[in-house]
Nucleic acid binder design. Structure first.
Lengths: 269, 269
DNA sequence: CTGCTCAACTTGTAGGGACAAGTTGATGAA
DNA sequence: TTCATCAACTTGTCCCTACAAGTTGAGCAG
């Protein structure tokens, strides 16, 4: 017959926290103070169960907290591992292409400069405009747009997905947007050569937990949010494109340089 | 005696997904298609248990997925509720204070303009510089800084925390930074009047799951990430302050206007 | 009517068991 | 040696029970 165990623990009486939280807190402290450095393996569930005098289920609840906070990952047969993140910096405030003689791909050059290996898959589709994109492009929801979609990897780790929508009126002026394959000089420059120059943009940045679909595409474990970046580019007349980028939140940081940056580059004193 | 039940379900054989995921996916679909609109209550665990022919634990696992994805919230005694989020837009690219005759507080005016009620608590401390802040301010880690800390609410809901660190050399030139209480004309303008004008800044934006501390201060439920915004302000000589803002990720979106915005304001056609 | 109690719900915590499935390294056969 | 097998670990899924704790509304005492 089952008997409810005494809930009061022997830690001095100031706890009141449920046991699975105590487990999580204790492990979090040990991760923070370096007992378990990034990449280290945690003790197994049964070891922790013995150490904390808790059932395996309770220990699992505690570990689950750490997993959903992104501090540790787990894999069947292997155990729990302290997560390590190297963030990748992304400068979002520089105007792309126009002033730089690069081949139209800021991502590849940025990653290569960081000593990492870029890789991307690319496809072009005709696609009805999603509501949020239609609103920003000032076209009817569901109207035809050209979608240029990019799935990006760094060292073969999924990094981000980027979807750029072009309104159909623009595709008539710049038909190569709808053709599969790269545009060597870069889309921004290609558009400028066809009479539509991007003179400004509006960026919106938000975050949330990934949808199951995003979690699959970006190979995101539990407890890692996505960073959402929506950029609407404008000519001096009207919106010309809308780019929706989804980043793994644990691997990316976005930067904006605004105003005079002289004070940032100087040495101290 | 316990008997493992037959794992194959009667949905045509294409499932393979564990049962708790099937529960989560089914409920997610029904949330997406409006069966359970934002604010609605989900069936209770025992009802779902009957509907899916699963144990309460299994149903709880499925609901737990939705909670950690931020789609639903749960509270003891009340049940599960579909989360509703109204995001608050924050324009981060305008230079504060200098050109506007406001009383130094972009937050209060932004919130009031949105028809919401702002509220904030404020305190000033002498605090050793955290490593990341020290690096950006180009001072020794742990050296004395003045910390001006702000805890902000909208309609009494915790919204964000903001910590601005000023290096000690700057406080000697502008002593009121270290005094508690508001600076009516705004700190940026106050600094300009004392010979230190902020001419540029560098913004870094990232996201992660909240620490238990942040979750408590911002009253964040499970499954809601935080949006981290770190702004380092510069004079033409050197860094003058570093502001670390922590937002509830489900309630905030950051915007940047860069370049000419004429095309954004125009009407279509 | 007001205000209190309490039953009947809800979710939260904690324990138990059994078996599935992934990983690793030792062992033994070829 | 090389390769397949398998035992012994790991976490993953699923079930059961029991009780704690928060919420609500019915119903009763005053």
């Amino acid at each position: 017959m089952y008997q409810q165990v005494e809930r009061v623990s022997h830690d001095g009486g100031m706890s009141k926290q449920p046991k699975y939280r105590q487990v999580a807190d204790a492990l979090r402290r040990e991760i923070d103070n370096g007992t378990y450095p990034p990449g280290a393996r945690l003790p197994s569930e049964s070891e922790l169960s013995a150490r904390f005098d808790a059932s395996r289920n309770t220990v699992r609840s505690g570990l689950g907290l750490l997993v959903t906070q992104g501090l540790v990952t787990s894999s069947q047969g292997l155990g729990y591992e302290v997560a390590k993140h190297e963030v990748f910096e992304l400068n979002a405030s520089r105007f792309e292409d126009l002033s730089f003689p690069q081949n139209g791909d800021a991502y590849s050059t940025d990653v290569t400069n960081a000593g990492r290996r870029p890789h991307q898959t690319f496809r072009v589709e005709i696609h009805p405009a999603p509501d949020d994109v239609a609103e920003r492009l000032k076209v009817e929801p569901g109207s035809r747009t050209v979608l240029r979609f990019c799935h990006r990897f760094v060292d073969d780790v999924p990094w981000s997905t980027q979807a750029t929508y072009y309104p159909s009126w623009l595709v008539e002026e710049a038909p190569r947007l709808a053709e599969p394959g790269d545009i060597e000089q870069g889309t921004t420059r290609y558009l400028a050569e066809h009479g539509t120059e991007q003179v400004g943009y509006f960026d919106e940045i938000s975050t949330r937990m990934p949808t199951p679909d995003e979690a699959r595409r970006l190979e995101i474990g539990a407890g890692v949010p996505v960073l959402l970046w929506m950029r609407t580019g404008y000519s001096d007349q009207r919106p010309i494109r809308c780019t929706v980028t989804t980043f793994r939140g644990d691997l990316n940081r976005m930067n904006y340089e605004i105003g005079d940056q002289a004070g940032r580059e100087n040495e101290p004193q």
